[in-house]
């Protein structure tokens, strides 16, 4: 059921009027939040950020779900990267030391190898994900959207209560 809803949500976004840039930005933000194990306060702050700034929430949340799943598989790699950055690369130690002793920064838990490693991975892939998502959305809308629109599945989605709720709240 979860996967069905996920696919449904994804298709709904693609068939909406949201600009590809917005979708891509939402997915990229979702990449950062999904991959990085944030503390509760940071998650709350992020949610506030999401509400304040004009970022596509649906795309972001879908992206968070997808990248959280992917994050479980790349955690060992992220951990190693974090360890490399925090422990092995000595030239970065003064920078980290300053950051560690700066007010509020320690609450981000940047000094945890998994958190930093995952964050750095998400930053590295931020722009590529943005660009590729944008291109994919444009490609989809240009070539595939109409075909999918006429499929029975899409019609079913449209009929479903969830689609109606989505339809009520989607930006026009």
């Amino acid at each position: 059921m979860f996967w069905i809803n996920l696919v449904k949500g994804f298709i709904q976004i693609l068939h909406s009027n949201i600009t590809p840039g917005e979708i891509a930005f939402g997915v990229s933000i979702g990449l950062i939040v999904g991959l990085t194990p944030l503390s509760l306060i940071l998650k709350l702050l992020f949610y506030i950020f999401l509400l304040i700034f004009n970022i596509n929430r649906a795309a972001t949340f879908l992206s968070i779900i997808i990248f959280s799943i992917i994050g479980h598989f790349i955690d060992p790699l992220s951990d190693k990267l974090g360890y490399l950055l925090l422990v092995k690369l000595e030239f970065l130690t003064p920078f980290w030391t300053t950051l560690y002793n700066t007010p509020l920064i320690p609450y981000t838990r940047f000094n945890n190898t998994l958190v930093l490693g995952s964050f750095v991975v998400s930053i590295i892939f931020f722009i590529p994900v943005y660009i590729s998502t944008k291109k994919l959305v444009i490609l989809y809308r240009t070539n595939i959207a109409k075909k999918v629109e006429n499929t029975k599945i899409m019609k079913l989605f449209k009929l479903s209560a969830i689609y109606s709720i989505y339809d009520r709240y989607r930006p026009k």
């Binding site: 951990d79 925090l86 422990v87 130690t93 980290w96 560690y100 945890n112 998994l114 958190v115």
Partner: peptide, 18 residues
Amino acid sequence: SNKSAFPRLKGTDVVFHK
């Protein structure tokens, strides 16, 4: 030593000493 590493359930916490 300028830092210490403490393995946790998830990842390793690195404490920087000054």
